[in-house]
Structure formats: structure tokens, C-alpha cells
Design a protein around this nucleic acid. Structure first.
Lengths: 400, 400
DNA sequence: CGCACAAAGTAAAGCTACTTAACTTAATCA
DNA sequence: TGATTAAGTTAAGTAGCTTTACTTTGTGCG
């Protein structure tokens, strides 16, 4: 994460004073909607002349614009201001096994163009070209000057290694871990570009635009081909010491207290992932008597139509998810857990089982909800993350 | 947690500019040791006159003092400055089931007096009086004007409810949850007093003074009568949405993937706590053939002397702890896990088993270490927490 | 209608904490 | 002793803030 500044002690001279006040006013406008200068002065404690002059600067820099007028009970009409969404644009890119998605959004976060391309099993280089092409197209569709793209964020499975400038552990995307690929994309797009784990982005997306708004400690569980989790604490991604926080596929199966000695075989790696990810649903359905070519989606369909084996398989999935949620709750104490990813898409079928099972498991019972963004969580998370960077960047590079 | 300020947007006027620069200089002196004014100017980017005048203010306010001189290769000698540890003092109080501990420390964090009193099973009110008496004695012993105690922090089991101003869930301390007790202590001590969970304080203590220095994401596991955990992320306590983060006693026992359907009985509450806390060691030893009146401490003693049943019981404890560590690692990705509390005290016997077991459990293997502070972790954590508050307070209340 | 009133916004003056540049002080070295 | 170097001070200038007083522009009411 390209943090802007967290706790770096810098000297505060007059220019910093000025720019900090401008920044504060801008953020206030973003958070509270259009306001007049007098109103801002009252609310921030700054004096009216200071607010006037700061807003004049911001307006001249193109960061702020007039947003109509407001007539109070008595007295002169007030001119309202708001952040100018056209001060910059961002790109969000979701590189998944099945789909490549690109979206362009303005600084308000409004998506103004997007493109979804099937990811056929080509080479990683071809995939990169495809993405770059889609991005160019999206920018053109949006009618945006490419120079005004202030930041782009790529979401991908695996972990980005900034030292080697490549992605690691993206097992589902062969060749995608190659060095130089991302640098090439960066160059061809000509914008600052950062790379993040898809589960983390989905968490941020759901937090920013979806079910997680205003959650103090938000957890997004991504159940699909694999099992992942993203944690948002106080609005920031919680990444752990090495960026591996939320790798709950590695949750061990705890030994039962009844068995005096631990069975060493219980610790296969990925065991929980195997027990909970999409394939597990298929396996369970088969064990319970379903036949034919099954997919997780198919099993959920069948369950929805009341096929007993499918219902039982789904029920088991729900119970296992409840265990995952309980484990996470014991460690993190979130106030909201959202189920997303392929399997999470069928959360409507799972929620009741999860909640019931949770009741018997732990006194710590966070709210559990279905993803509000569905397939778009990663893409919108990329947009949200890019917005943060872009707003910083656009502000920093304004000419006063 | 009485946070000083986190992200509250305030207007920046001249006075704030001034005081922020003074604060920055003071923190720099604390972090980097005695420095001259010229040196500070070079390092911070402030001009020499500004640094001079800020330090003059700080010195006059008693927050900073001369700390000798430094003669450079050539040129005039430099006057060095350092934070004045006598600008204020703090109290740390540890209210445990067996011991009541109090320590007084100066603003450097140096403990200058302490007192440890056995906690005989009296009424909670008598306990409070005992603590207040011990605190007064400690302040007297330290030779400190009681008015210069800037903050006191109490560590206790359970969770402090600031709404009702009392402690909840402190099951081991009968009556201690009563309303008004803490207000009375506050009043009798006459200092700002805050209350925190003991495991959290122990984590902060170990982070600040012990094994966790400079850890990015630090976890302290407290294994004793119960099972608790404290998390320090980027130097701040991670408390979760409701202050229940780290309640790993509630970790569920995950179902084995082999069993198609979840055994509903596996979810007894506190099951993991029962399986790992001190009593579990005793139970295991008994199951393995040890007889007589056993305590956890006794089992560890026996294991140290090679008694086979004890060794096996300790081994099992180590294996179970490894599962706990693996679960926490999968969620949080810490870089260091410290074992503390009563059982953690015997960590030397456990560490190897924990590490070996961990190897078979998960690719995420944080460093695991024994507590460096032992029994003092909570007390020193209370001091560390009080220091944070006190430094803020003393700075804020200086008269320029 | 026009006048009182209220609130938005501006102008002018003053303050303060900063920077810059030049200076003084105090040490070493030749 | 004087050159050199670095610490620290003095003095002047400046930017961004506040205060105070003013202007502008709307409503309400006699």
C-alpha cells in the first residue's frame, strides 16, 4: 500500500499550514456535501476570510467548483461549493481467472465506463495486453483525457512483492508471476499503478460502496476457488506484518480436547481451504449421493429447488463457514462479516445456517451478511483504493 | 482507550502550528536521545531560530532540560537537550487475583518505586482501599509530589465499560464489577485514571519494554487461569469493534473435513480455553498417570526433572498452543508471538514443541518467544499506557 | 415602498510564527 | 595569533491567520 503519510513527523511551516487547511476543507466538502464558505468557517473554526481564500485557491486549481446556491431563512444567499469530480480520474482493474474487468471513475467514485472481457487461457503477456487494451478503450469511452488518469489499481490473486516488482503465489494465473509484466503495464498505461491482493480489494470495495459502510472493524470472506479474507479496520486495510493477514485458508483444524494427543495428520496444509472452498461443496454433494457433472453453482441451484442431497451439502458448507466466522470473531472481534466470492454469491442460502451454527459456537457473534457488490467487489475495491491515491496525488500536484 | 486524537480534523492556526512543532521536537528528543538545537534544525528542516525559540519554551515549561554538551570536531560546543523525566509521573496498577501491584514511574518510563501486595480474598471495596493505600505509599516512597502524577492506569481482568463506569466479566474477582468502585479510586487518588484489560496491557508492556520492541504486528498470548490475547499493531492496541479482539478462549474447534457432518457438541463455549489454560495441563498430567495434589506449576517442575507423564502433558500443551498460534497467524499475520501469563512463564519448556508443531501446521510461522517481563507484564503495560496519556497531558497543560 | 434586520462574504489592519541572511560566540588547528 | 568551523543569536522580511469593520444581498414588515 502506497501510504501517503502515517505518523511521519514533518516540520510544519506556513505552507504546510495552508495546504493542510485546504485539504481539510476539501475533505469536509467530500464528507458533508456542498457547503457555503460561511458554513465551513462556522464548522471548522477557521475564520471567514481564511476559508474564502482557501476555497479560491482550490477553485483556481480545479479541485472545487460551485454547486448552486442556498437561500437561508433570512439574509444573503450563500454560494455552495463541492469537490470537482472532474479534477482527476482513476482506473480500477480486476484480473481474475475467468474475467478481466476494467472501470474508469471520476474523483467522486462514480464509474463512468467499464469493460468486462473473458479471460481465455492465453499467455500472461497476452493477458496483460488485453487488459491494457481494455483500459485504453474504457478511457476513450469515458471521454477522459488519458493524462487526467491520476492513478490505477490492479487487483489480482496472490501477493505483490514490491521488492521484485512482481506478483507471487498467483497459482491460478500461470505466468502471471513473471517479472516485468506489471512494469510494462505501468509504462503502457502511463499512470501510477499499484497492485493489491484481490480479497483485500474486495473487502475495501464492500466497505466503501457496499455492505460494510461505517463498520468499525469489517471482515470480508471470499469463498470461491480458494478461501481468502480481507480486513478493514477504521477504514484502512489491515495487512499484517507481511501482507498475509486474512490467509484463513491456513487456519488449522484445532485438536479436540477429548483426544489426549494431537493427531499429526490433522495438519495438512490448506486443509480448511479444502474443506470450505467451492470444490468442497461439490465433493459433499457427491458424497451425499448427487451424480453427474457437478459445479458449486449447480449444487446451490439444486438446493434452491429442494434436492435433498444438495440441501444437505449446502447446510454443511454453512456450518463450516460458521466455524470460520467464529474463529475470526474470536481473534478480531469484527462488527460485520460479509460473505462474498463465488460461493458467497449464494449467501442467501447459507446465512441462516451460519447464524444458527454460530449461536452454538461462540458468544461473539458479529453480524453476518451477503455481499452487496457480488462479482464487482474486487473491481470496485480497486476503484476505491485508486481514489484514495488519486485524491492525494491530485491535491499534491495542484498549482496554487 | 482514551485516545488522544486519531484523525479528528481540526483547523490549523498559528498556535497549533507552534505547539505541533514543539511536540515534534520533544518526541524527537525522546526517540533519538539528547540533541543540540543546530542538530534538530538540520534533521527536522526547521530553521535554527525556530528550534531555539521552541526549545526555550519547552525548557521554561519544564518539559525539557539541558543534557550536557557535545564538542564537535571543530567549532563551538553544542548544548544538548533532553526531555525532562521529572516533568510528570505516572502510576501503573495491576489488579490480579493473586497480587495487587503498583508502580510509580517518571516520564522516561523509569520505575522509581513499586509495591506488591498479596490479594487476600477480601471484599472488592477492601481491595480497592488496599490498592489506593499502596499507591499512596509508592508515591511517597518515590518522593514525588502527588500533584505531579499526571495519569494512572489500572489493569484488571474483564472489560471496562465506560458507559456504566465499571468492569464487566471479571469473574475471578468477586464484587469487583460493582459500580462506583473505580470512581472512588479515581477520587481518592486524585488523578486521571483509566482502566484496561490485563491481557491488552501485558501486550503493550511486552511491546514497549520487553520482547516485542519494534514489532510491526505483535501478539501476546496470556496463558494462565484463563486464555487471553493482546494485539499491538503499529504501536497501538488493536481492540476490535467491541473491545473483544483477542478473546481466543472462544476459538471454536474446527470440524475435521473427514466427518461429513459437524458434531454439534464440539462447540461448547470456552472449549479451547478449557483445553489450553493452566487446568488443562493438570488434567492431562492426571490422565497420563500423575497423582497427588497437582498444580500447573508443579507439572512443569516435574517435566523439568524428566517425569514422563509430566513431559507428555507439557508436550501436549505445546502442541495445542501451536494450534492457537497457527490460527492467530492465519488471521493476523503477526511477526512475533510472545507467550506469557502463568503457563507462559514456563515457555522455555514449550517453545520447541510449539515451533515443531507449527511447522507441520501452517506455512505462516511467526517467531514465537517467551515473555521477557514475566509477572510484571501487566504492571509495566499499565505504566506504558499511562505514559502515553501523561505525556500528552503534561504537554497540553504546559504554560508557555 | 423603503427600512430594519440578518446572514454571506470582502477589505484592511494587525499579529505571530516562520524563514533568510547576517552576525556573534567559542571551540580547534596551524 | 589568526584562520576555520560550527553553534547559536539578532534583525528583517513574509505568509497565513484573526479581528474588526464593512459591503452586499436577501427577507419581512410597517
Amino acid at each position: 500500500m502506497t501510504n501517503s503519510d502515517r505518523g511521519e513527523e514533518q516540520p510544519w511551516n506556513r505552507q504546510r499550514l495552508r495546504s493542510n487547511n485546504e485539504r481539510m476543507l476539501l475533505e469536509r466538502l467530500r464528507a458533508d456535501g456542498p457547503s457555503s464558505r460561511a458554513q465551513l468557517a462556522r464548522e471548522t473554526g477557521l475564520s471567514k476570510p481564511t476559508v474564502s481564500s482557501a476555497l479560491a485557491s482550490l477553485e483556481q486549481a480545479g479541485l472545487v467548483r460551485e454547486a448552486g446556491r442556498h437561500t437561508p431563512e433570512r439574509g444573503r444567499v450563500a454560494v455552495l461549493y463541492e469537490p470537482d469530480p472532474a479534477a482527476g480520474y482513476v482506473l480500477g482493474l480486476d484480473i481474475g481467472r475467468a474475467w478481466l474487468r476494467v472501470a474508469a471513475a471520476d474523483l467522486d467514485g462514480t464509474v463512468i465506463a467499464r469493460s468486462d472481457v473473458r479471460n481465455r487461457g492465453r499467455s500472461a503477456a497476452a493477458m496483460a495486453d488485453l487488459v491494457v487494451g481494455a483500459a485504453r478503450q474504457v478511457v476513450a469511452d469515458a471521454g477522459v483525457d488519458p493524462a487526467k488518469i491520476a492513478h490505477a489499481v490492479v487487483g489480482t490473486p496472490g501477493v505483490y512483492d514490491p521488492g521484485q516488482r512482481r506478483v507471487r503465489y498467483a497459482v491460478n494465473l500461470p505466468g502471471w508471476g513473471r517479472s516485468g509484466l506489471l512494469d510494462r503495464m505501468r509504462e503502457e498505461l502511463g499512470t501510477p499503478l499499484s497492485v493489491h491482493n484481490d480479497a483485500n480489494l474486495a473487502a475495501l470495495g464492500e466497505y466503501t460502496f457496499g455492505a460494510g459502510k461505517n463498520s468499525r472493524l469489517f471482515v470480508y470472506v471470499m469463498i470461491g476457488t480458494g478461501l481468502g479474507m480481507g480486513v478493514v479496520a477504521d477504514g484502512r486495510l489491515f495487512t499484517g506484518a507481511h501482507g498475509a493477514a486474512g490467509e484463513i485458508g491456513f487456519l488449522p483444524l484445532l485438536p479436540r480436547p477429548s483426544s489426549a494427543v494431537v493427531d499429526p495428520k490433522s495438519g495438512d496444509r490448506h486443509s480448511l481451504e479444502n474443506a470450505v472452498a467451492a470444490d468442497a461443496v461439490v465433493r459433499a454433494a457427491r458424497d451425499l449421493g448427487m451424480t453427474g457433472p457437478l459445479t458449486a453453482k449447480g449444487v446451490f441451484e439444486a438446493a434452491r429447488q429442494g434436492v435433498p442431497a444438495a440441501v444437505a451439502a449446502v447446510r454443511q458448507e454453512g456450518e463450516r463457514l460458521a466455524h470460520v466466522v467464529a474463529a475470526v470473531a474470536a481473534v478480531l472481534d469484527p462488527d460485520l462479516v460479509v460473505l462474498g466470492g463465488g460461493v458467497g454469491h449464494s449467501a442467501d442460502l447459507l446465512l441462516r445456517t451460519v447464524e444458527q451454527t454460530l449461536h452454538g459456537l461462540s458468544p461473539l457473534r458479529p453480524k453476518v451478511a451477503a455481499s452487496a457488490l457480488g462479482e464487482d467487489a474486487v473491481l470496485l475495491g480497486a476503484v476505491a483504493t485508486a481514489l484514495g491515491e488519486a485524491r492525494d496525488r491530485v491535491f499534491e500536484q495542484r498549482t496554487p
